[in-house]
């Protein structure tokens, strides 16, 4: 699930965001507690708490004292907006840059995209949530590495 090549709290926050974007976590759904999360993914609870704190700061989730943490009603909307903004900077712009380097005319790219638009609803999903679909957050997969070693039933 997590690699150790970037801060783990950041990866946790991203994973939960992905679940919200994919609809696995709906508005006002309860999120796992940091301790549950830490135990489940075998990570330090303070690290997990840091990831959750980041989400609270960003307004993606909110705390209800004594009960737990829940998805903000407007979380999905805001995340989508954010991702869409990033989409052009992180996906489209590099395409254009690369196209210029290798001499692909932009008109050719536009034509290609229009061809997709012509397919009835055949467009590909945007964003980075392709993998999130089969990863229900309340009972998520432990990920390859952990799953390989885990023999508990």
């Amino acid at each position: 699930m997590f690699d150790d090549r970037s801060p783990i709290y950041h990866q946790i926050a991203e994973a939960i965001k992905n679940d919200i974007l994919s609809g696995q976590l709906g508005a006002d759904d309860q999120v796992m507690s940091t301790n549950q999360y830490a135990a489940f993914y075998r990570i330090n609870p303070a690290t997990a708490a840091k990831g959750f704190a980041q989400l609270v700061d960003e307004g993606v989730i909110y705390k209800r004292r004594g009960i737990g943490m829940f998805v903000s009603p407007d979380a999905r909307e805001r995340l989508l907006k954010e991702r869409r903004e990033r989409f052009f900077a992180e996906v489209v712009d590099p395409i254009v840059d690369e196209a210029r380097v290798i001499g692909v005319p932009l008109t050719e790219i536009v034509a290609r995209i229009q061809a997709y638009a012509g397919d009835a609803n055949g467009g590909r999903r945007t964003g980075g949530d392709e993998q999130a679909g089969d990863d229900p957050v309340m009972r998520p997969d432990r990920g390859e590495e952990a799953g390989r070693h885990d023999t508990r039933h």
Partner: peptide, 17 residues
């Protein structure tokens, strides 16, 4: 062995929390 080590890590985390 690996499964027992992971049992140890799980126990350590659980008890620490």
């Amino acid at each position: 062995d690996a499964p027992t080590r992971y049992d140890f890590y799980d126990e350590l985390l659980r008890d620490y929390m």
